[in-house]
Amino acid sequence: MAAGRAGARRVGTARGAAVSQIQGTPSTPRRSRRRKSVAIAYEPGQGDGAEPQRPRWEPKHWQEQLQRIREMRRSRDAPVDEMGVDKCYDTSAPPQVMRYQVLLSLMLSSQTKDQVTSAAMLRLRQRGLTVDSVLQMDDATLGRLIYPVGFWRNKVKYIKQTTAILKQKYGGDIPSTVEELVQLPGVGPKMAHLAMNIAWDSVSGIAVDTHVHRISNRLKWVKKETRYPEETRVALEDWLPRDLWREINWLLVGFGQQTCLPVNPRCSQCLNQDICPAAKRP
């Protein structure tokens, strides 16, 4: 039997060589060709000394902290819940007018308390708040209607300039991309992402204001301390699951208005006191 198998191997080798010679190619051992043509895929961290894939960084206790903040925000009775930007526009207005009102309320809200923004928007809406009505309004009247929002004189100028651009370039509507929105006078990244969310129902990024910026640093939700809201946005988007991006602004703004205050935070009332790196413990 051994001799028979050896004979069969010799016949197979001879046939292979013959085929190779007929096709005009040198006779090459089959194993050698296979090694050249078959790519071997290694799992991360296996074979050839490949480095193991590092897990994505995420903050310690963040899921538990988030769940406790949700619990503290369950009553939805912060100023942002009752007078935030998403409460300032006319829901019965045509979609184009509604989107314009959302953008204007965002422009007014910068450096301004929600209560003041809401009152200014109400006065504007009582005059009929549309692109055309604002373009026909003189600066003095517009100033009186939005006063005392923060930097109201600058905002009169920005609102007039932006409204003219919307009329000329977008047919009275607002842009539908962050890139175009931030090109408008008086519109920053936070406003652009909120406008995408509220006006266009599109999650383009995390809207980071002073509350989100402050709380993210206190909870160590950033790898290293950030100085500006835009730095915080980039840091958060690097690890926070995208399905939480829409919620996080509303959640942290209200939490910052009621509990995690800029000065003298109410740590004793906070459910995260035992797992907050910045908590003032008794």
Rank of each mutant, 00 (worst) to 15 (best):
G4R: 14
A8S: 12
A8Y: 15
R10K: 15
V11A: 11
A14S: 09
S20A: 11
S20L: 01
I22M: 11
T25M: 11
P26W: 13
S27C: 09
T28K: 14
R30Q: 13
R30E: 14
S32N: 12
R34I: 13
Y42M: 00
Q46L: 07
A50H: 13
R56H: 02
W57D: 00
P59A: 08
P59C: 05
K60F: 14
H61A: 10
W62N: 03
W62I: 01
Q67W: 08
R68F: 05
R68A: 15
R70C: 05
M72G: 02
R74A: 12
V80K: 05
D81G: 01
M83T: 13
G84S: 05
K87I: 01
K87Q: 12
Y89K: 08
Y89A: 10
D90A: 06
T91V: 15
T91I: 10
S92T: 14
P95H: 12
P95F: 13
V97L: 07
M98N: 11
Q101R: 08
Q101F: 09
V102S: 09
L104G: 09
S105Q: 10
M107F: 04
L108H: 07
S109E: 06
S110E: 10
Q111T: 03
Q111A: 08
T112R: 04
T112Y: 03
V116I: 09
T117W: 06
T117N: 13
S118P: 03
A119V: 03
M121N: 06
L122Q: 12
L122I: 07
L124Y: 02
R125T: 05
Q126D: 10
R127L: 08
G128C: 01
D132R: 15
S133F: 08
D138Y: 13
D138S: 06
T141N: 12
L145F: 04
Y158M: 02
K160M: 09
T162W: 04
T162R: 09
L166H: 05
G171D: 02
G171A: 00
D173I: 04
V178F: 06
V178P: 00
E179G: 00
L181G: 02
V182P: 00
G186R: 09
V187T: 02
V187L: 07
K190S: 06
H193G: 07
M196S: 10
M196W: 08
N197Q: 14
D201G: 13
D201N: 11
S204C: 11
S204A: 14
A207E: 14
S216F: 04
N217V: 00
V222I: 02
E225K: 14
R227M: 13
Y228W: 12
E231T: 04
T232I: 00
T232N: 02
V234Q: 15
V234G: 01
A235Q: 05
L236E: 04
E237W: 05
E237D: 08
D238W: 05
D238F: 05
R242N: 04
R242L: 01
D243S: 04
R246W: 06
I248Q: 01
L252S: 00
V253L: 02
V253N: 03
G254R: 04
G254M: 01
T259S: 08
P262F: 10
P265M: 09
P265T: 03
S268N: 15
L271W: 07
L271N: 06
N272R: 10
N272C: 12
Q273N: 15
C276F: 07
P277Q: 11
R281N: 13
P282D: 13
P282R: 14
